[in-house]
Amino acid sequence: MDQHNITEQRLTELEIKASFTEDLVEQLNQVIVRQQQQIDALGRELARLQSQQLEQGSGPGFRSLRDELPPHY
């Protein structure tokens, strides 16, 4: 093989690797977007549950130490 063919082969291999890398980055980006959507939904649900808990009067008020015992006691 002459130098031109070797260079051409290396360039082709680099283009293939770049293509796979672009695909991987896009897949990872989609995962991050889905995870952020889940985090946002969980944050909204937590806020809703906290406000519901406050409305019911069972918010973070006085708690007996007996309520804090681990379940195995």
Rank of each mutant, 00 (worst) to 15 (best):
R48N: 03
R34P: 00
D23R: 11
A47S: 08
R44G: 02
L69M: 06
P70A: 09
S58L: 14
G43C: 06
P70R: 11
Q50P: 03
V33H: 00
E45L: 06
Q56K: 13
G59C: 11
Q3L: 14
Q53W: 02
H4A: 09
A47W: 03
Q35L: 12
E68L: 15
E45G: 02
E8S: 09
H4G: 01
V33F: 01
V31A: 11
I39N: 03
Q52P: 00
L49W: 01
H4K: 12
S64N: 13
G57T: 08
Q53V: 06
L69P: 01
Q27Y: 09
H72F: 15
K17Q: 11
Q53H: 03
L28D: 03
G43I: 09
D2R: 05
G59E: 08
E8C: 04
L65R: 15
Q3C: 11
E68A: 13
I39R: 07
V25W: 01
G59S: 10
E26H: 02
G61F: 10
L49Q: 05
S58I: 15
Q38F: 00
G59R: 05
V31C: 11
N29Q: 11
I6Y: 06
F62N: 12
Q37L: 11
E13S: 02
E55F: 10
L65M: 15
R63D: 07
R34E: 13
A47C: 04
R44M: 07
E68Y: 09
R10A: 08
A41Y: 02
G43L: 07
Q30H: 12
Q9C: 08
G59L: 07
I6W: 05
Q38D: 07
L54K: 10
I16R: 09
M1K: 06
I32E: 06
P60E: 07
F62S: 13
S19Y: 09
S19I: 04
I16Y: 08
Q37R: 13
D67R: 12
A41Q: 10
L54V: 14
R10I: 14
L14K: 06
T12G: 12
Y73F: 14
R44F: 03
E55P: 04
A18S: 03
N29I: 01
V31M: 12
N5K: 13
R66T: 12
L14T: 02
R34Y: 04
I39S: 01
L14Q: 08
K17C: 04
R34G: 05
L14W: 03
D40M: 10
R34K: 14
F62E: 13
S58E: 13
E55Y: 11
E15L: 04
P70M: 05
